[in-house]
Each structure stands twice: as C-alpha cells, then as structure tokens.
C-alpha cells in the first residue's frame, strides 16, 4: 500500500487525526490571537488608507483561504473520481462550508473597505464578480451533494461540479492582471517582492497561517464526525438485517 492509500483509510484517519486536530486548533488560536493583536493595535496606519488598512488583515487571508479551500476540494474530488477513495469524497463535503464562509467573509469585509476607500460598496469588475461566482460555486456544490437520497450519487455529481468550477480559481486569482479592474493587483505574491511594509506583512502572514490552521482543524473535526456517522449508519443497517 502506498502512503496515500494508508492516509486515506478511514481507520488510519481516525487515529492520526486525533493527534493533528488539537495541534492545529491551538496553532490557529495562537496565530490568530497574536495576528489580531499586532494587526489591530500594534501595526502602523497606512500612509494613504489610514486606519482602514486594518480590514486587510481579515480580508486578504480570508480571500486566500477561499481559493485554497476550493483548490483542496478540486484535488479531493479528483482523488475520489479517479481512485474511488470514499474518504476523499467526505473531505470535499467537509471543506465546502468552511470555504464558503471564508468567501463570504472576504466579500463582506471587502465591501466594508470599498465604501470608504473606493467610494462604493460593490462594482461589477472582473475580480469582484469572479469572487461572487466562487461563492455561488460553493453553495451549488453543497446543494448538489445533498440533493440525492443516495449519498454516493450526490457525491459523484457534486465532485464533477467541484472540478468544473475549478476553472474559476485562476480567473479569480489573475483577474486583476488580465483585465482592468477597480480591485488592486496582488501585493504579497509578486515577482519583485512584496509591496507591503514588513510591519504590516508580519501580522498579515500570521493571520494567514492562523486561518489555515483553523481550516485544517475544522475540516478534520467535520470529517471525523462524518466518518463516525457513516459507521453508525453501517451498523444500523447490519442491525436491521440481523433482525
């Protein structure tokens, strides 16, 4: 058995995830705690935006996580469709609401920043529109996955949707480079180094690490509950047959 198959076995997952869960949880609490303290209080105000810049410490990591969670869902969907790993399908389901929440946070916090800075809550430029499409893809995935009585059929249809929707991820990421948008281009990940002061970059990266650990912890928690749920359902079926 390859390491990948061992990782995807539900029994093995229940044992190693019991270790990973508290570690990720505490790391998330630590990173977000320190990151928020630095971002909201210790870091300097921006030379143009003033205090409004602090919205960035929530908005940017949430937007990164929105793309990261969807990419993870596309990868686990491919794992399910190709290798027929049932745990991969459950992992996609477990990640969807987490990613949807991060997308919603990114959209709302961006809107709150846009009103004072741009002078508008919302514009239909390529970045904002594709991010909204990403949110709807999350909702569509969740609706489709739950729309069938037979969870296997729902899982398969929803996995295909998750993969088709992955086309949107590079569009969200590169929309600011491909077209004229009101949204500014990337500050941190760019060829000639970050266009952001270290005093602001440190809390931003801490928040990003914290959000990542948080997503890992919540997805593991949800996945453990789903594995146990499937186990209970299997036992109930056995019991019904034995009677």
């Amino acid at each position: 058995m390859s390491w990948w198959h061992r990782l995807a076995s539900p029994t093995r997952f229940m044992s190693y995830s019991a270790w990973v869960l508290p570690i990720a949880g505490w790391l998330a609490a630590g990173c977000i705690g320190v990151g928020l303290a630095l971002g909201l209080f210790a870091s300097p105000a921006d030379y143009q935006q003033g205090e409004t810049v602090r919205i960035m410490y929530v908005h940017v990591p949430a937007a990164w996580m929105a793309l990261f969670c969807y990419s993870a869902m596309a990868a686990s969907s491919a794992g399910y469709l190709i290798w027929k790993q049932p745990l991969a399908e459950l992992a996609t389901r477990a990640t969807a609401p987490v990613g949807a929440c991060f997308t919603a946070i990114a959209l709302v916090s961006g809107s709150l920043w846009g009103q004072p800075m741009w002078g508008t809550w919302w514009v239909w430029d390529a970045r904002l529109t594709s991010a909204l499409v990403l949110f709807f893809l999350y909702l569509g995935y969740m609706a489709l996955a739950e729309a069938f009585d037979d969870p296997t059929r729902g899982g398969k249809a929803a996995s295909i949707l998750a993969l088709v929707g992955f086309v949107n991820v590079p569009i969200v990421k590169f929309s600011v480079d491909w077209w004229n948008t009101l949204h500014q281009p990337a500050s941190v990940v760019k060829l000639d180094g970050p266009a952001i002061d270290p005093a602001m970059l440190v809390p931003l990266l801490l928040m990003a690490a914290g959000f990542t650990f948080y997503a890992v912890a919540v997805v593991i928690l949800r996945l453990r509950a789903m594995v146990l749920e499937r186990k209970i359902q299997a036992l109930q079926r056995q019991l019904a047959e034995a009677r």
Partner: peptide, 18 residues
C-alpha cells in the same frame, strides 16, 4: 456622474512614506 478612487498595491506606514 460617479468617481471611484483606485487604490494601488502598495502598503506602508506614514513615517516610512515620509
């Protein structure tokens, strides 16, 4: 009829800018 400000991708504290 409407004016929107476009922010660039540079973030820095006031004293650094000065």
């Amino acid at each position: 009829a409407a004016v929107l400000a476009k922010h660039d991708e540079n973030y820095m504290p006031k004293d650094v800018a000065e």
